[in-house]
């Protein structure tokens, strides 16, 4: 009897892994293609795309594309720029969006519903459609710096950071998750005289690991991978360019595909690293987040 059930369990486990692996193949192949291709010369890379050789490190394998890519563009600079802009934006975003969401979910105040509705409505506005008005706007904005007031935000980090800090998606994410937190805890703390900020800091935030990680992951993807049009129009000097604008360096008349793949592989490393970090810190700790007591 026990033997049969053990056998069953083994089979079921095998089936589970088989499913997981099959699904993994579906999601893995472009990344494998990208990494493998980055080691191949262009001619071979392109002719390999018609067969499964596209996923195998076979043929003429070398680091040449990487050397060439580094000669073509200041990759380190672009990555530093992107990482700096992304990290700053994500940190500020999490702080301001969660504060706002906290007030929408746990506090009652005049204007709350109106404000929340307005914020959610902005989810619909595609950035491409407000880029020009926003450009005209930031080019006239003042900034208080070391040398007094400077006008215009072009060619800076702040122009790549500040307009992106708050977005409706992140606020919405926090709102939806805060709704699932136990209200009793907050009311109890309130009865004991805790200030709202203390409740936010000591009760709500510690319970919000998964949503913090999620918000950070999603926001960082947006900042690192999708910042193209905006930096293109507000940053004219190479010194402040992010990675996606840098991609343009590789699209000459004859596209150097091998170098493109090498560049993409390089710039993907920080994002994957960040995801692993977040996953380790929050997502895998399922057992420890017994939220609903």
């Amino acid at each position: 009897m026990a033997l049969v059930s053990a056998e069953n369990r083994g089979l079921r486990l095998a089936a589970r892994y088989a499913t997981l692996t099959l699904v993994a193949l579906v999601f893995m192949f472009p990344l494998v293609f990208m990494v493998v291709s980055s080691f191949k010369p262009d001619q071979q890379l392109l002719s390999d795309t018609s067969s499964l050789r596209a996923f195998l490190p076979v043929g003429d394998i070398s680091l040449d594309n990487y050397y060439a890519a580094f000669r073509r563009a200041p990759i380190g600079l672009f990555m530093l720029n992107s990482v700096f802009v992304t990290v700053t934006t994500v940190l500020l975003s999490i702080l301001l969006c969660s504060l706002a969401a906290f007030s929408f979910v746990f506090l009652e105040w005049t204007g709350r519903n109106v404000l929340l509705t307005i914020i959610l409505a902005t989810l619909i506005i595609p950035f491409e459609t407000i880029a020009v008005p926003l450009l005209l706007f930031v080019s006239k904005l003042p900034w208080l710096g070391m040398e007094g007031i400077a006008w215009g935000w072009l060619n800076t980090y702040r122009v790549q950071i500040i307009p992106w800090i708050v977005d409706a998606l992140t606020v919405f994410l926090f709102v939806q998750f805060f709704k699932d937190l136990p209200r009793e805890l907050i009311e109890a703390a309130r009865v004991e005289g805790a200030s709202w900020f203390m409740i936010y800091r000591k009760i709500v935030m510690p319970l919000s690991g998964p949503v913090l990680a999620t918000a950070a992951i999603l926001k960082s993807l947006k900042m690192y991978n999708e910042q193209y049009l905006w930096p293109l129009i507000v940053v004219q000097d190479e010194a402040h360019r992010p990675v996606m604008v840098g991609l343009g360096y590789f699209f000459q008349l004859q596209i150097a595909w091998g170098e493109v793949m090498a560049y993409l592989t390089l710039i993907s490393v920080p994002v994957i690293g960040f995801y692993l970090l977040m996953q380790r810190a929050f997502i895998s700790s399922i057992a420890s987040t017994g939220v609903k007591g």
Partner: peptide, 21 residues
Amino acid sequence: VESFPQESYNDSVVAAALAGN
């Protein structure tokens, strides 16, 4: 000199002209 990727060069110039830069 400041160099731009060719594919987006015109967009950069138009944006800079709008912003007076």
